[in-house]
Design a protein around this nucleic acid. Structure first.
Lengths: 126, 126
DNA sequence: CTGTATCCTCAATGATACTG
DNA sequence: CAGTATCATTGAGGATACAG
């Protein structure tokens, strides 16, 4: 597959496709969004969890660690008892908020299209 | 989870989140993109397959059928031998090209950010 | 040419309980 | 409070062979 792949914009590593891969994880986009728009780019673990109804402790930590590895957030540990940890959006992370909000903005302004799609899906459940 | 979910923008069915769900499937976005930007909104199965290096016949058909169910494309079968089938982007489908190209456009103009992310990931593989 | 039918694998996600 | 460790689930995606 690698050898036969044409040198065009459809390669696995083309810029366009990589944008979507970032948001492939179920929670990454929501963490970026809530962190930036509601929590001032920085928040403690507990605050994040309460801001993301439905997320489990496991997925929260796991996603945040992945984001840290990607350089999207910075993890700070305070040597207190009980322990306190917070996550801050990095400059790189902030840049990824841009395309995300672009998408969210489109969704908010085009809810009719999304509703039409949902209607089609419901009709399918006959 | 349903009962305890606050009535805010984080509900499973909020408009913003649904935009990303559309592109959750690995091939949907690429089919939309190639169909619109390179194939004049309509193409036969074989053409699509050759335009999407790496896709299997199974995933191609499956994704196209899902898109048809969603009202994104129209499937036309010609009673010829050998059989011919083509898929045409619906008006609804065309509207979903918009946010997709928005995202792709951002990616093309910000490849430096995507490269930075990739670099972080590589560094992680030490 | 187009599509179906199996079988298979693996990674993402979640539930639960435990630790410092 | 923050995080780790298991275990289980499940659905997406792919390989292959067959069919109309």
């Amino acid at each position: 597959m690698r050898a036969g792949t044409p040198d065009n914009e459809w390669r696995e590593d083309c810029a366009s496709r990589r944008v979507l891969e970032i948001f492939a994880s179920k929670w990454t986009s929501m963490i970026l969004h809530v962190l930036h728009t509601r929590l001032g780019d920085c928040a403690r673990t507990g605050v994040l969890q309460r801001s993301l109804p439905g997320i489990s402790k496991k997925m929260l930590t796991q996603t945040l660690r992945d984001m840290e590895a990607d350089g999207l957030v910075t993890r700070r540990v305070y040597g207190t008892v009980p322990p306190a940890v917070d996550y801050t959006l990095t400059p790189l992370g902030k840049r990824f908020v841009e395309p995300l909000e672009l998408l969210y903005g489109w969704g908010r302004q085009n809810s009719d299209v999304l509703d039409a799609l949902a209607a089609n899906r419901d009709r399918q459940l006959l």
